[in-house]
């Protein structure tokens, strides 16, 4: 097989249908860009989850009696609870927070809102045992074991609030993937259409090729490569788009959020670890579409 011949056929084909080629490449690029965006969101969510779940605590709020009368967790009820928590499986640390300490923390958190502070009394806040779990998934067993025990008011999991946050982020990711999928469908149809047009405009050549005994590969490879070129170029554009999106949009809009380390920063390393996936998906999906189109619509 002569590579130069096949290559020149590919270039001619892409040039001849410039408008379709551009449409095909752009649609592919947008679709892959969205896919890449979705993948970056997934990576960010994963990292946030690791980050946040390390910091969340399971809180065992203690009864009003203990809160009022046992500022050092020295009563038998409280110290027994603490001991049992410490020896429970999956528990890393247990810290007692007295009513006074809770009130001090409350004052610190809401120091910007003096009217709230004026209303608050230490008596409103319960003392608690703050439990750091090695695995946040162990929360239900802890909650089950300690809810209703003497001295325990209730057991809460800060992770529950996070799960709501992450459900929202998961929704964002899913929406991105759905749009990427719809866009991918449009890209596939365009690729298929472009190949059909390309085959039609070159039917004379293809006819001569068939009659002179060119192999199937020789006849169809140029069309297939056209699709693959579009897929790869689309992938490259998508990667460029992600880099531009990072620099021009994400880094600026979310600068404060990154600064406060609320959301981990999306780095170039993230984009470049997603890049090969985009190129591979672009090329292989285009090739597959091209192959099926040729099988179904183009006579050999």
């Amino acid at each position: 097989m002569r590579a130069s011949f096949v290559f020149s056929e590919v270039v001619t084909g892409l040039r001849r249908n410039v408008t379709m080629t551009v449409a095909m490449i752009l649609t592919t690029a947008i679709s892959l860009g969205l896919l890449g965006g979705g993948l970056l969101v997934v990576r960010t969510i994963d990292r946030m989850q690791q980050d946040y779940y390390q910091r969340v605590e399971t809180v065992v709020y203690l009864s009003a009696d203990i809160s009022a009368n046992d500022p050092g967790c020295t009563s038998s009820t409280c110290s027994a609870l603490r001991g049992q928590l410490e020896s429970a499986p999956g528990v890393q640390t247990v810290i007692f927070e007295s009513r006074q300490a809770a009130f001090a923390r409350f004052q610190r958190i809401f120091q910007g809102q003096p009217e709230l502070l004026q209303l608050a009394r230490p008596e409103a806040l319960p003392a608690s045992l703050r439990v750091q779990l090695s695995d946040p998934a162990r929360f239900p067993s802890i909650a089950k074991a300690f809810t209703g025990r003497p001295g325990v008011d209730r057991v809460t999991d800060q992770g529950e609030y996070l799960r709501q946050l992450f459900r929202a982020l998961d929704g964002l990711r899913n929406a991105t993937f759905v749009i990427a999928l719809i866009q991918a469908l449009a890209a596939l149809l365009l690729i298929s259409n472009t190949i059909q047009i390309s085959a039609f405009t070159r039917r004379a050549e293809v006819g001569v090729m068939r009659l002179t005994g060119a192999s199937r590969w020789y006849t169809q490879l140029p069309f297939l490569l056209e699709a693959v070129v579009a897929g790869v170029v689309g992938g490259v554009l998508a990667i460029v788009g992600l880099v531009i999106g990072k620099v021009a949009f994400v880094d600026r809009v979310l600068a404060g959020v990154f600064e406060a380390a609320i959301v981990p920063r999306i780095g170039y390393a993230d984009i470049f670890s997603v890049a090969p996936i985009l190129l591979l998906v672009g090329a292989s999906v285009a090739a597959l579409t091209g192959y099926l189109t040729l099988r179904l619509y183009v006579r050999t």
């Binding site: 097989m1 002569r2 011949f5 050549e205 001569v208 090729m209 002179t212 005994g213 060119a214 192999s215 020789y218 006849t219």
Partner: peptide
């Protein structure tokens, strides 16, 4: 063209 498409050397 008839020779190129069956891979004859240049």
């Amino acid at each position: 063209f008839a020779l190129e498409v069956i891979g004859k050397p240049r």
